[in-house]
Amino acid sequence: MNIVVCVKQVPEPTGTNRMDPNSLRIVREGIDAVLDPADEFSIEAALQIVEAQGGTVTVVSMGPTRAAEAIRRGLAMGATQGIHISDPALSGSDALTTAKVLAAAIKRTNPDLVLCATESSDAYTGMVPGGIAHFLGLPQLTFAKKLTVANGKATIQRQIEGGYQTVEAALPALVTVTGSINTPRYPALKGIMQAKKKPVEQLTAADLGFGPDEVGQKGAKERVLGWQPAEQRKAGQVVKDDGTAATVIADYLASIKVI
């Protein structure tokens, strides 16, 4: 089983993101960056499959030089190898370009299964996995909270509004996973040491056949016009519970006529 997992390095999710008023892009300098926690679930899912059935797990990421750290983290968890697409020309790419570039890199590995998170924890568009599936000509099984791969078929339990669906597709297929699919392992020290020696292929946009004008900010179809701070809710009264919290809340509910 040849599995590719798409990963992204994102600003530390508990940190405060801000925007550069000139470039109108997210400020990444001086901000801690981590492997998107959402991607740990897809890496774990891939590892569990190859541990049971044999095969390789390739972690692929498009991102600046330091995104290599996110790939290393995946390798430390146990992935076999990495692909890092890094090129200044790709900076500012939109979801569609990201999907095209990732698909072009993934295609070279001829995978049986491609795994992605449902959405990244910084941009949240959720448009990239479906785009990759389209460009690779694969069916997409989405929002998986359970995944089994057997007899040339992937079967998932797909989260939906009021319950779930069982959905299946013949391999090769792309699957997006949610956070309930497993509990990702922590990289062990041994894994971290081994990860340093695992191969990571470096690719540029040109290596994948993209010209500088079709990718990055130039290739993006969306354009930011401007921004303003959103109207924020203000903090109200904060009370430390001294045993009377129930009365305080009940009084408040009475004041707004809920009880």
């Binding site: 993101n17 925007m19 179809k221 930011v224 016009l225 921004w227 701070p229 959103a230």
Partner: peptide
Amino acid sequence: WYSATTLVDVTIE
């Protein structure tokens, strides 16, 4: 954007 602290105006040309 950014946990709804910023409203960004976006267009498609």
